[in-house]
Design a protein around this nucleic acid. Structure first.
Length: 284
DNA sequence: ATTGAGTCCTGAAGGC
DNA sequence: TGCCTTCAGGACTCAA
């Protein structure tokens, strides 16, 4: 499911309902997700008040009142569904793995069909050195992410730009869908070698600036749309996002290029084991 | 040091 | 009502 905009949507949805609430009970319906739940996970969460909910890349950071942080990654199919106290389901499905009961009687259910998601509990001050964060690149929507920074991380890279943008060390939070959309909007071929974007000539700089600009633009639009939906993404409050309707190349194999002045046909190739959709005619 | 391939897991969709 | 293959929004681990 979730790339940065979807995680941001979930963050907002959770914050709206859970901020200031106390976690009364954690029900773990299996030993772990992608990784086992850490030792003391349940005990560490129960009784804690949720003070703040942040996002870093595709990670949710749920700040607790003892300065520890509940880390959640949604993987491909992770989602939260919220129920108020008079609306709690009578039974849970087989992929409802974590049941969070709040002290107001409300329940947050974490469901994850493929179980690629994971959770951790980070003690106070442990975030900087946490292995999931140590090598993360900059936030694409922050001021740190500009053409200069992008060029620096692409310097000397021989991999295609598509693969580089998916690399969380280059820039953190982009996934397969948005990278396809960004490259299309920027008119940059997914096959272009990364280092060719990192040079000093005006033409090269222009490409980097365009990539940065379109990255921010696409993410902002998607966040505004409330996150996108492919097949199984439901925003935390049950609302579906609509950005999927705005895809210009993703999933559009065989269709005419969205660019009205281009007569190209969207094609689909495989890069690093992932599908890439692009217009071979107007992306260079 | 980088890069690509294989891996985890389940379910949906399409071909026959 | 089948069976088989392919594919899916992520990212870790390993080998070259």
């Amino acid at each position: 499911m979730p790339e940065l905009p979807e995680v941001e949507t979930v963050r907002k949805g959770l914050a709206k309902r859970l901020l200031g609430e106390v976690i009364a009970h954690i029900g773990l319906r299996r030993e772990g997700l992608r990784f086992p739940f850490p030792k003391g996970f349940k005990k560490g969460l129960e009784g804690r008040r949720i003070e703040q909910i942040d996002r870093r890349a595709k990670y949710l950071l749920i700040r607790l009142d003892n300065d520890s942080t509940w880390l959640v990654h949604l993987g491909m199919t992770g989602k939260f569904t919220l129920f108020s106290h008079n609306d709690i389901p009578e039974e849970y499905g087989k992929h409802d793995h974590v049941i969070v009961t709040m002290s107001d009687g409300g329940v947050a259910v974490y469901n994850d069909v493929r179980r690629f998601g994971f959770m951790d509990l980070i003690v106070a001050g442990g975030e900087q050195n946490h292995h999931h964060f140590a090598n993360l690149g900059c936030e694409p929507l922050s001021e740190d992410f500009d053409a200069k920074a992008l060029c620096k991380s692409l310097e000397g890279k021989k991999s295609p730009i598509k693969n580089a943008l998916l690399d969380q060390r280059v820039v953190a939070g982009l996934g397969n869908i948005y990278v396809c959309e960004i490259l299309f909007r920027a008119g940059v071929s997914p096959l272009r070698i990364s280092s060719s974007i990192a040079g000093k000539s005006p033409q090269v700089t222009k490409r980097a600036e365009l990539l940065v600009h379109e990255t921010k633009q696409v993410l902002i639009e998607a966040i505004e749309a409330g996150g996108s939906t492919i097949s199984d993404f439901a925003a935390v409050d049950g609302d579906l996002g609509y950005f999927a309707h705005s895809f210009r190349v993703y999933g559009k194999e065989g269709e005419a290029c969205h660019n009205s002045r281009c007569s190209g046909i969207v094609s689909r190739i495989s890069q690093g084991g992932r599908s890439t959709f692009f217009c071979p005619k107007c992306q260079h």
